[in-house]
Amino acid sequence: MALEKQTMESIPKHGEETHTHDHTRYYIGTIIALFVLTAITVFVAGIDFGSNFVNLMIAMAIATVKASLVVLFFMHLRWEKGMNAIVFLSSIFFVGVFMVFTFLDINTRVHVEPAGPSEPGASAGYEPIPMPMYVGKTPAAEGEAAAAPAEGEQVATPAEGGAAQN
């Protein structure tokens, strides 16, 4: 129809675009690098860098290098339009916001968790109050489980069902 004709004069083909070049050598390089980095991850996991947090951060850093390789080469971001890169990086930014602000709360809280019947110092150490179904199973849990019968009852119905099956 008339409205189509005006616009259909020239249709550029995909063939003119950059990403139809043969990139095989990049891909092979990427996969080799990923294998090497995987080996490094496994190797580094055996080393204790001092704290749980540092270990985690090192593992995450290596994973991020690997992820960057995937994004840049396999996902073509290296050859892409800038907008797609902005879109992708924005997700990283907002994931960061989500995590940083949540941890901002979690890490600066004054802990008012109930001390329970055990020694007062123990409560500060994030020891989990065990599930009701633990009762009688792990000796360590017994004492504390008895401390919270009130909450236990609320949650217990399905949980106890699970325990009964076992």
Partner: peptide, 11 residues
Amino acid sequence: SGQSEFAAAVF
């Protein structure tokens, strides 16, 4: 809700 005071002030 039991959020830390520091986080509350920032927010």
